[in-house]
Design a protein around this nucleic acid. Sequence first.
DNA 1: TTGTTTTTCATACAGACTGTATGTATGTTG
DNA 2: CAACATACATACAGTCTGTATGAAAAACAA
Lengths: 204, 204
Amino acid sequence: MKNNRRTQAPRTQAQRSAATREALLAAARPLFAEHGFGKVSADAIASAAGVTRGAMYHQFDDKTDLFAAVFEQVEAEVVERVGAAVAGSGEADALTLMKRGAAAWLDACGEPAVHRIILVEAPSVLGWERWREVGMKYGLGLVQGMLEHAMDSGAVPKQPVTPLAHVLIGALDEAALYLARTDGSKRARREVDAVVDRLVDSLG
Amino acid sequence: MKNNRRTQAPRTQAQRSAATREALLAAARPLFAEHGFGKVSADAIASAAGVTRGAMYHQFDDKTDLFAAVFEQVEAEVVERVGAAVAGSGEADALTLMKRGAAAWLDACGEPAVHRIILVEAPSVLGWERWREVGMKYGLGLVQGMLEHAMDSGAVPKQPVTPLAHVLIGALDEAALYLARTDGSKRARREVDAVVDRLVDSLG
DNA sequence: TTGTTTTTCATACAGACTGTATGTATGTTG
DNA sequence: CAACATACATACAGTCTGTATGAAAAACAA
């Protein structure tokens, strides 16, 4: 037997890197979500991931860079979930699709990892500009796409999409935070759904 | 002459405290607005204010407490400005008043001190909960009041005010940040105004 | 294989920052 | 003026971030 000294199976560099990156992301995510960026030390993250700060600073430029990676991961997940909810909900007119998307977004934001990281921490840690830049690739892009589709199909009158998308996103973001605060109240959820549905309808 | 040794006129304790508090607030505000809470050291603030960290930690519990004071100051100023704009704009129906309030809010957010401190930093530094708690005393309270008035006067159908107020505030906040980014573009401002006006109209 | 280079990670360290403890000066009160 | 309270400055301890240096592991070459 050639490998009796090593209990660990040999791994490729890419596997090693991927493993520690994932461990760091997985460890950082709940910590950031619960305590916020400023109150989580690099050491706490590395420890939780079972590595040292050395490994972390090798994989990421700095703490902010690690946060950015977590942020993108969460964004990608959410847009995936929302996209799936919209796509898998059968045929419907543009406005109905938007309502379903909004509801899926509110669902996703139930998780603290989502609303705290995406909506509260990220703008301050990365700066609003970079925040929206990334958001454009994900959620904001999705909304803008649906709006354009709605305008093409005539469900919504033609108008500048970007400002409208921003205002809509803002409304949805705040709605999500409001719901996160009421912590699962059925009534609050119904009320918010009603407000959001009326808002979407008003676009037509 | 009894006071020839002292060039400084004697001041009461209250005056001394008030002076250093104001100096600290005035110094901290632009620093927070430009660099964000995390990147401004207590020493930088104290130096800019012409005092030492000792004085600062005597007047405020910690850096967060100082930020909270700045935040409240800015909030109070903004609500004052928006309130004045609405009150001093002559008689009008409820929806028109709301549109004027929204426009005044967008104006106020032109200043970085306003949008950066109130909209970007505060939620992360103070936590969303405390942020909204203070906001309720100021801007959010104003909106809620206007909504209630609009419902009483029949301009808006009766419905739960709190969630609606949150959604509206969210839309206005994001609109303000969007505008802050476009940095004074007349066209962007017109487009946002149009979106916001349509949004308010859709309430009726 | 063996030697060499590159990548991954750990440890040691320097600088910065926060909050506190302690001492001093300045008002306030009896 | 004596006794005290308040306002502030300085010194210090602990924590944190980011970097520099060295070791282990993998990739590569001969």
